[in-house]
């Protein structure tokens, strides 16, 4: 068990879509280890998604939220919070709902404390005026390793612990959101937006839309999470699906069925220990839900990943685009071991 100190800044920034359009966002930036004298140089450098928060059951996690303000919207003195979505038995103070506890004003810090209890896939997001702050991009992936996790021992490199049948060789996030460019434009232009008019024109995996989804991390520095899934034939691949959009989505991988071994950071177990894990070709799930899916990489090849609501495979109406990516399977032994989630 370790003590983990993280510091996330809340600020604004810009992202790009494959058609060259640029969109104003709110978001997170990782300030961990940055000298105090330099943190303000991170204003305006929000990324989509926010930095990965990766911890282990039993860790003591101190997460400092620093509100850096919005350089593009200095008039907008919104506070922010961190809501660890799905944390069991949470207390109000660390739950991040400003109406029910506190928020963090511009220029201030606040330390959230978590001692994770249950492994699985979670998400974090700001809960201050969430309809605006989530759509604008204040979201990020969160995973909790089981207490016995050991990346160097195949029996203990698991999603839910030794003996749970959740061993994996590689893991990837499939983090789904939508982008309503009109809303982002209105917010950037200091205009009101009627959120009940929400009508996205881009559909994103890991903050990117196709074909940017399959580009490397460095190609889009503000959107540092590629969505390309790579494995050697025969390896076990863990997909951590997260939906933090405002729509329901149906994700299919052509030629690859997946076994659902976790949902909402809980193993599918009946009260008597019944193993309710199941296979799926098409995963239909909703905002605020997560799925842990495992497959064994089949024969080498390229397996398309796409949203079976096919109109979401577009960028502002132009095909191909949107929620599309690839599983690339190589001959056994081709890829070196994975350095970290999504890499």
């Amino acid at each position: 068990m370790a003590v983990i100190n993280k510091r996330f800044g809340a600020t604004d920034g810009h992202i790009k879509m494959p058609d060259g359009s640029e969109h104003y966002i709110f978001g997170w930036v990782d300030l961990t280890g940055i000298p105090e004298s330099e943190i303000f140089s991170y204003r305006g450098k929000a990324q989509l998604l926010g930095p990965l928060l990766e911890v282990k059951v039993g860790d003591e996690v101190y997460l400092t939220l620093t509100n850096l303000g919005m350089p593009v919207r200095p008039d907008l003195d919104d506070s922010h919070t961190v809501h660890w979505h799905g944390f069991p038995n949470q207390i109000a103070l660390y739950d991040g709902v400003p109406e029910a506890s506190i928020s963090v004003p511009v220029g201030r810090d606040f330390v959230y404390y978590y001692k994770p209890l249950d492994p699985g896939t979670y998400m974090y997001h700001c809960h201050f005026e969430p309809v605006e702050h989530i759509q604008m991009g204040m979201i990020g992936p969160l995973l909790v390793r089981p207490a016995d996790y050991d990346p160097n021992n195949p029996l203990y490199k698991t999603a839910y612990g030794h003996g749970t049948g959740t061993e994996f060789d590689r893991e990837y996030f499939v983090f789904l959101t939508e982008l309503d460019s009109a809303a982002h434009h209105q917010v950037a232009s200091v205009q009101e937006y009627d959120w009940t008019d929400f009508s996205p024109d881009y559909w994103l995996i890991n903050g990117r839309s196709y074909p940017d989804t399959v580009k490397s991390a460095g190609d889009l520095p503000e959107q540092p999470f590629p969505a390309l899934i790579k494995a050697n034939s025969g390896e076990k691949v863990l997909l951590r699906y997260i939906n933090l959009g405002y729509q329901q989505h149906s994700i299919e991988i052509l030629g690859i069925p997946v076994r659902i071994v976790g949902q909402d950071a809980a193993r599918p177990l009946g009260l008597n220990g019944e193993d309710l894990a199941y296979w799926k070709d098409c995963n239909y799930f909703a905002a605020g839900q997560t799925l842990d899916a495992i497959f064994t990489a089949p024969a080498p090849g390229t397996y398309p990943v796409f949203n079976r609501d096919c109109y979401k495979n577009t960028n502002a109406g132009v095909t191909p685009g949107g929620m599309v990516s690839e599983v690339q399977v190589f001959a056994a032994g081709t890829l070196p071991p994975q350095a970290g989630p999504g890499q």
């Binding site: 074909p211 069925p257 098409c282």
Partner: peptide, 19 residues
């Protein structure tokens, strides 16, 4: 294509590498 079936798709890409 045959979703849900045990088959290896053979995607076609353009020179830019896009489906």
């Amino acid at each position: 294509v045959f979703p849900g079936q045990d088959f290896v798709p053979q995607p076609v890409k353009n020179p830019a590498g896009t489906f």
